[in-house]
Design a protein around this nucleic acid. Structure first.
Lengths: 209, 209
DNA sequence: TAGTTGAGTGAACGGGTGTTCACGGCGTGT
DNA sequence: ACACGCCGTGAACACCCGTTCACTCAACTA
């Protein structure tokens, strides 16, 4: 059975674990994580159901691991975007662009987060909302340095950050629901996101308390 | 003829149907509509599983009936609010107030819509998103008559309506997730919704194209 | 090299699932 | 007063589910 190279015990275990995570993510795209079964996941991963327990104590635990993995890619998206000088120059156009593109590439992860944020088990829901709260706070720090905002109360900044993240999530949901190979729809979503953000930013100047 | 007990055949049937709908709504509050079973619903409704089929061909069909029922209460909320002269006078404060109060009273229906909008079966999801699109269009008609908006393009008006409905849905989700008997949290959500709407409205004046 | 460890196996269990079917009983139209 | 129609019944079916157990056998360790 030695295909490529001899695998150490640890490598093999990690590989199976990853196969289980991939299988679960894949299956949950079709019907939602909450409705897939341990047996389906094991089967798709090419493993007997009992072997599942060598890696996770329950489907809930696997779900939490998936949350972590999904938010890791989300954070990477933000980090990469901040490094790009074009993004800072035309922040709104870039944000819409980056959002749609990244969601398209990591569709499975975003679909998982969007769905399970409200539809999942209690534990998974709480984990996702906690991560999103962290995300709002991170964005608030960035926003607080913008010209029109620098002397707002921190409550107000937090509010605006929530407004943005909320819309980001909603736009991500739209991209996820979007059928493949429809560049027209994609452009429409991008344009919609851009205009919504511009409208919100326009309100910045006149805001008081 | 008999005033108290005797029920006509039709009345009795409708009563069982309603019991099934109520049972499903109740159970879906605890764990989500997609994870409850036909047998659980029948049991809670006080009926044998096979009897279910006298009223619905499948759980999916029952789900669609629930979507209809839930949006009926949502529409009633808007209709009632428009009749109230106070609402037109202080439109934003009133909207936040009405939203939170109505969601609190009809928690089950809003929870159902919020969850199944993204987490439900394909058919249920599509039905809900269709209803929400109708709702956006209705709101767009109302918004188009506002002073700063009256000569916007219809695309722009639709965009703003989407922004509002999106936030309404998100705020409704928050109220639904809110534990009972926490007037402080409730006030916070209300205040957050109010400020978000004010910020968006501020952008109206300066909007072009 | 011999012994230990632990990832993966295959079978078995008890229980919940959707769906079907013949049947009983009661409101109903004749 | 009678026969019909239809809602609800209870049993049966064939599945799929999560979980357990003793097991194998290859990678590791001493």
């Amino acid at each position: 059975m030695a295909e490529s190279a001899a695998l150490t015990r640890q490598e093999q275990k990690e590989r199976t674990r990853a196969a289980l995570l991939d299988a679960a993510l894949e299956l949950s795209q079709e019907s939602g994580f909450a409705q897939i079964s341990l047996r389906q996941v094991a089967k798709r991963a090419g493993v007997v159901p009992a072997a599942f327990y060598r890696h996770f104590a329950s489907m809930d635990e696997l779900g939490l691991a998936l949350v972590e993995r999904s938010f890791a890619t989300l954070r990477r998206m933000i980090r990469d975007a901040q490094r790009d000088p074009d993004v800072f120059a035309h922040i709104i156009d870039a944000a819409a662009e980056v959002l749609v593109e990244t969601v398209k590439v990591n569709k499975a992860h975003f679909a998982f987060v969007a769905r399970e944020r409200v539809g999942g088990s209690q534990a998974v829901r709480e984990a996702i909302n906690h991560e999103l709260d962290l995300f709002v706070s991170e964005l608030a720090v960035v926003l607080a340095r913008l010209p029109n905002i620098e002397n707002w109360s921190s409550d107000d900044v937090q509010m605006v950050a929530r407004l943005f993240v909320r819309n980001m999530v909603a736009n991500a949901e739209e991209v996820v629901e979007m059928p493949d190979g429809r560049p027209d729809l994609e452009a429409k979503i991008k344009e919609g996101a851009r205009r919504q953000m511009r409208l919100i930013v326009l309100g910045f100047e006149k805001w008081r308390s």
